[in-house]
Design a binder for these strands. Sequence first.
DNA 1: CGTAACCCTGATAACAGGGTTACGGTGCGTTATT
Length: 480
Amino acid sequence: MELEQTLAKYFGYTTFRPGQREVIEAILAGKDGIALLPTGMGKSLCYQLPGYILQKPVLIVSPLLSLMQDQVEQLKRIGEKRVVALNSFLSLTEKRYALHFLEQYRFIFTSPEMLLQQQVQEKLAKMELSLIVVDEAHCISQWGFDFRPDYLRIGEWFSQEKRPPVLALSATATQKVVNDIRTTLSLHAPFEFMYNVDRPTISLGRVVFADRADKAKWILQHIKETAGPGILYMSSRKRAEQYSEAFTQAGLRVAAYHAGYGAEDRQFIQQQFIDGELDWIVATNAFGMGINKSDIRQVIHETMPANVANYMQEIGRAGRDGEPALAILLYCDGDEELAKFVVTGDLPSASHVDRYQELVRQQVQPSNMLKNGELSETAFRVLAYWSQKESVEQVKARLNQLVLEKYQAVDEMLKITQTKDCIRTQLVGYFGQKLQEKPENCCENCGIHYDEINTERLKEEKKVEMIPWESRLKQLLIGF
DNA sequence: CGTAACCCTGATAACAGGGTTACGGTGCGTTATT
């Protein structure tokens, strides 16, 4: 059957979106692949369609439980019953059942951590898969080395034996991230499809402040006077809460969001935002992955993110409906120091490496280190991962290297806050691409026509405030 | 590592300036308590 016929039969579409056909054909030809497609451009179809053609299960490794649930629901909505999310939401009985009948499912979603459990591994060893998908594959690079080491173990697992094609999917990935994906997954001459990373409808604003108080004043004013829906990214949980409270007191529909809240609260806030009951989310970088909201008009960074990849990922949440949107990066001297601390603050130290080895030598459980609270659970897991693989000296060198790389990544982001050249050109450059065409309201340095837009806005105001979102965008562009 | 908020001191009134302290992100799975 032709691909189009299968597409129509299962998904009801008549044509493919850019890249989908190429990626699917490569997979069907047995090749590995890396596909970078913006959210909303049908990434998941790249594995769902092959799932219907290759009559064996597709395994999808996903970073978040909520993401898995969404994907499962989405598939069930189009009538697919043979789909399962193998994760800790399942009770022991449910998990046993799912594992027992695992080969019967068409789509199996799971986390890296669950995938690597012995019982899952044993089951998978007896099964034949048609395809392994690593969804949101930038997580390998973003999390694998110092946060969720199991992201690195995915590649170790299937590199050793005969395996089906592997497809890595992500919205955006810098050159470094693509390299990390390729090497840690040991992809064999992968087919690579990279959609244009530039999002011409997002204007790239930037405001530099003399001190923090000025910045705070600007934020308070800006949020009060401009329209959402928007995300205000903060670099600390506490500040997210403080700002959120200030806005709430000013009568705005705002909520804070960070990983300190329980899963239910987070789900609730996210849903309120999606449903339009909240205009602003004041969040840490915990917010965003898997958010399906097309009309986000603004993404503001109170402090710069830790690297360019994260920045692109975060601003890319704006304007998915194709209508104009605005990203504003705020900077104040010294902001990079906080970013540097935050990204390296929880790494194990050289003395931790020594102590780990010492405990192993004495045949004491290294996890005893956790009892007196000298390092976090995350730091311990990272330490354990590397210590099991490498010598004490190698681990120390690796950790030092990691710190250096993280600092460099922050410095690259810092350049964007300081450049006098076109921000868009520079940003796109980090993704190995060349800017095709500058949009009219390109960036702070090329000139965003705030004045023009402001005048229009005034004219607009004299008429009526009825044109739903056009007038909102104009409102949104004041405050400069 | 750097910042901000806090406290203390000195010398007799308000407050400058030194010292101290608290604070800073991301998620899985499992297990022991409410």
